[in-house]
Design a protein around this nucleic acid. Structure first.
Lengths: 342, 342
DNA sequence: ACACCCGTTGTTAACGTTCACAGTCACTCC
DNA sequence: GGAGTGACTGTGAACGTTAACAACGGGTGT
């Protein structure tokens, strides 16, 4: 009895297919890669052998020789939030449509060391390109750590670095919401902002402020928030106590929900006494009480454009470009805003 | 002038490091893999060379020879929903903590062909294991397509197949919610269900029904829903018109929001006239109007346990196991439920 | 009839790492 | 003083694929 009884049957490789089909492994390779110059009869024979053996090509070996893994790396933060989750989803869909895998690293904190480690990780894995969903300002320095030579695109984070950026026009969205409220006759518009480290929060503040300035209205001090419904709730409790408040632009829908809750508890009628507008248009906001006027961000478009940009860099072989693509926001009027009382 | 002016400097490989450090490539490998038998002086020399050249190891080449990619595949559906997004996040965190990459495929539809393609995709890529987030019944047949020999774990989908499963106890959660409402003195509890194809929807229906039967209460016909706030809204409009309704258990928080909205519009007081309980405990539900009594699912735990199970399979070399792990739900009482009016 | 080209196929050499094995050297032990 | 031991290091051969080139044969143009 032979000692080497190999019950553990190794999965078939190209050479096995070649043997069965009576051709060389190179011909098998050609069939697999749709090479033009293969006789139809040969091709069918090879395909039959592949089917018979249950052969699956080994993309690792292929990546080693071609130096392309057909995998893209994505670095993101807290993919539980609606915005990042939707963005990553859009990225994954677009990447797969283009025949790429997506390797995801979700960071819970956003320190530079963490980002650096994630990027190293992806670089070692040999990704063909990297998308960094970098909404925070502190991610800017981290972008400097991007491995040189690897194509990269930043999403939602225009830190003026030397990478291409795709983002939704935060400024414009905030301006639209604020002008809408001013247009309804409100003397001024208060603001519950996002965390200051976030570029999106910053852009929304800027757009809100610009709209007020343009209309020559006083600019109240923004109330702090951290995107969470709770922080919105706390801001709402404060706002409910200020008699002259008639309109509030909240930096995202989750906080707007908290504001609405605080107003409901305080007996403040929305939009009767105070109008409220949000940002994001999460699927729920249409069913808030009252349904929320808000700014819609097309995350799918962001994902598609970032992948398109990245693939362009990859295919053209240029390591890094400095393009900008801004996705316009869409304004949705619902029942939470109305004319100022007179 | 030489024609081959190689301005495109190839990234350094082990042999380059070896040359600079004056050792063999194998010694470099040993340093990189923390092999014990390397002289400290040699080690520092190698590390210095690595640093000097900016060398990064090529995990693709390593995977080819070791036959381990240290990558896990995840197949999921609609990662925009809170549940799947949180589960995938939990999986990613746990995997990375264990030193594994995660390659994600998000399907938008759930047909067998799509799942099969995704699994093939991952198998070719050479993942060490696969997690399938398979909440729908139609995913059951797809699980049969799992490439043989590849360790796999199913999440949220106990279809009695031959794979291990990790899930939250849906039955128990629904039972808790229903019993809570019965305990408050409600004659019976109505139910807005999820889509019938989802095992979670099924489990929640079963738990709700069991609690009613146990208490000897009549079992009303469940109202249909598809997880969306809109479907909850429509169910809510119906329920508001039925006078004997005093308590509703809604299969998820998003639909519960729609129900609350419909009740608000119809002037139905919650919980004064009707008590409402949900399922999921999304971050927003604490700030609904009123704050929602609901069942919390620990998605992080689900992710951790699924990865732990998968890694056990991988390390023990057994291709497939048939374990079950059930994460207990947690019941959260808030303001949307109260005693029945008498 | 000859050179030439093109479609088709095979042969050999990478790609960059780890594994198996074989050395070398300094000690120790009897 | 010779064999044995253990720490350290080097050499060659994989892993499974694609790229580069060579070779073959039948047609075409002159």
């Amino acid at each position: 009895m032979t000692v080497s009884s190999r019950q553990e049957r190794r999965s078939p490789v190209m050479a096995d297919v070649a043997r069965v089909a009576g051709v060389s492994h190179q011909t098998v390779s050609r069939v697999l890669n749709d090479h033009p110059n293969v006789r139809t009869e040969t091709r069918t024979r090879v395909l039959a052998a592949i089917d018979q053996l249950g052969y699956r090509r080994n993309l690792v070996a292929r990546a080693l020789v071609t130096r392309h893994s057909r995998t893209l790396g994505v670095v993101s933060f807290d993919t539980t939030l609606y915005g990042p989750a939707s963005t990553v989803y859009g990225i994954e869909q677009a990447a797969r449509a283009a025949g790429y895998f997506v390797s995801i690293v979700s960071l819970r904190t956003i320190d530079r060391a963490g980002v650096r480690e994630a990027l190293d990780y992806l670089a070692e894995q040999g990704v063909d390109g990297i998308v960094v969903v970098a909404p925070q300002r502190s991610a800017a320095s981290a972008l400097a750590d991007l491995p040189p030579g690897v194509p990269a695109v930043a999403v939602e984070g225009d830190h003026g670095g030397d990478v291409s950026v795709v983002s939704v026009d935060q400024f414009e969205g905030a301006r639209l919401a604020t002008e809408h409220l001013i247009g309804l006759g409100h003397e001024t518009v208060w603001h519950v902002r996002g965390p200051l480290d976030w570029l999106e929060a910053e852009g929304r503040i800027a757009g809100w402020r610009a709209a007020l300035n343009m209309a020559g209205r006083p600019v109240p001090e923004p109330l702090p928030g951290d995107w969470s419904p709770r922080s919105g709730y706390e801001a709402g409790r404060l706002l409910a106590r200020i008699p002259e408040v008639t309109a509030v632009f909240v930096a995202n829908d989750q906080m707007a929900l908290g504001v609405l809750r605080a107003f409901a508890e305080a007996g403040v009628d929305v939009p009767g006494r105070i109008s409220v507008a949000g940002f994001d248009d999460v699927p729920e906001s249409e069913f808030f009480s009252p349904p929320l006027t808000t700014v819609r961000q097309d995350f799918g478009a962001v994902g598609r454009h970032s992948i398109a940009m990245l693939l362009k860099q990859i295919e053209e072989g240029q390591a890094r470009s400095r393009e900008r693509f801004v996705v316009p926001p869409e304004f949705k009027v619902r029942a939470s805003t109305s004319s100022a009382r007179r």
